[in-house]
Design a protein around this nucleic acid. Structure first.
Lengths: 130, 130
DNA sequence: TTTGATGCAAATGTTTTGCATGCAA
DNA sequence: TTGCATGCAAAACATTTGCATCAAA
């Protein structure tokens, strides 16, 4: 038994393009609203199915920021995220990957560490009091 | 209007003690099962309410590992977590806090970074093939 | 044609909430 | 007594899934 082949679908393409075009890290529901402007009949189920497929294929990244629902990122290049404690906004951070912390973690662990996910917290520019 | 005073409750105490006693990072449902051995009539709602309260008070920590449900940790001392890609287990890592990454993040960010949450991934001792 | 993808709706799983009652202070 | 905490059940959400139909290949 082989893995099922993936067929083209304009809905999936639209989701991917939208994610590539924004820096907003939208939720599934926001994506649904957006794609519906182009394909009014698309269903939430289809959005979820495609987000799962694209995530699996590595075309997009799923972020679990801990605010109850997942967010998605069309930028698959290694980068970090900042989450504002006040407004909840998720912002890309432009900084060098800090790979060596995997090495540090490995040195203290009885197993195999191969990666890490780091979220930074604080106040974004618009929420910092003057 | 002042904040409501917190009254003692044995249910909350039991939840806190259980979390202090284990290194398992249980989910709300697991905690519910456990506490029910002592207070058979406790409801899931009470467990959730107390977990939220204890988290707010800083008595416990809520972990969003991205596996669909939150987990809780009674160890509030700064430490890192490892999540096994295979079995999903969440394990404490004994390593020095790497505070300087906040400094690095701040240097590249137009806002204020005051903390970070890092989850390490890989295979735990029992899931690493020989 | 064949088979994966879709739309729709129902189902699932987690977490929250309204309300009458219980219990700490 | 006063009012926070509880148990119970219903509700609210986010996400998944079954199925008939649509549309790539």
């Amino acid at each position: 038994m082989t893995a099922a082949a993936t067929k083209y679908s304009r809905q999936r393409e639209c989701i991917k393009e939208y994610l590539r075009s924004t820096r907003e890290h939208p939720t599934a529901d926001t994506i649904y609203m957006k794609v519906r402007e182009v394909y009014p009949n698309i269903s939430l189920g289809t959005v979820y199915r495609n987000l799962a497929l694209l995530t699996e294929q590595g075309e997009i990244i799923k972020l679990s920021c801990g605010d109850g629902c997942d967010r998605f990122d069309g930028n698959t290049a290694p980068h970090y995220h900042f989450i504002c404690r006040q407004c909840g906004r998720v912002i890309d951070l432009d900084m060098e990957p800090i790979e060596h912390i995997n090495t540090i973690a490995n040195a203290h662990f009885n197993g195999r560490v191969d990666g890490n996910i780091t979220y930074f917290y604080g106040l974004c520019r618009e929420c910092v009091p003057d």
